[in-house]
Amino acid sequence: MTTPLVQMKNISIAFGGVHAVEDVSLDLYPGEVVGLLGHNGAGKSTLIKILSGAYKADAGEIWINGKKVDIQSPRDARANSIETIYQTLALADNLDAASNLFLGRELTTPFGFVDDSRQEAETRKIMARLNPNFKKLKEPVSALSGGQRQSVAIARAVYFKARILIMDEPTAALGVHETKMVADLITELKKQGLGIFLISHDTREMMELCDRVSVMKNGQIVGTERVEDVTEDDILSMIILGKNPKAAA
């Protein structure tokens, strides 16, 4: 049996008195897409932000490739080949696409200055692959459409050869065509052996893209099932009722 890429073991975090995530365990294998579903405030984003280093868990362990790791910051997560596409995209609006793509990891000349021409060339290259229509390389990203901004955020995650990818509502702001593009990208990355955590509200999309889905409610996992073992209705009732019909049966 292969080693899981990610194992989150008994993770808990509380904000004030509220247990946002309580004793949650989750794993992810290479070439697998695991979906996280649940209502707003169920704890999906919080859980994923612990893995990406934005929050620090109160309790629990994270294992990457069978080794326990300590993720204190987004930098630690990146050092462990974890890249995240945040729901808010986390872009610097007044910087252009290339500056955003390399933000915090700028390509520099031997003198320590930012190598703008190389950054731009690299951005052009990856954008040609992700979104061939993307032409506005010199514009601040605030002047881009929702889909274009999304592709900058995706490019940032994909460019640095992540092995674990976290996508928080990657298609929420996108049109039909762009959504299809993201779906194709997920399939391609999966083939390359990446592990992907996907958060979405679109149950049907999740059934198509994911290998397994985990449903959360009130900070806890209701159940984790392989998509071929459940119907969309099963998932919906897990989300709404907070009970796993299969486990009950």
């Binding site: 986390a90 910087l95 500056s99 933000l103 915090g104 990891r105």
Partner: peptide, 14 residues
């Protein structure tokens, strides 16, 4: 510039 733009986003960008 990134921090002035959005400090939280800058932090998430590492």
């Amino acid at each position: 510039y990134a921090i002035g733009d959005d400090k939280e986003a800058a932090e998430l960008a590492g």
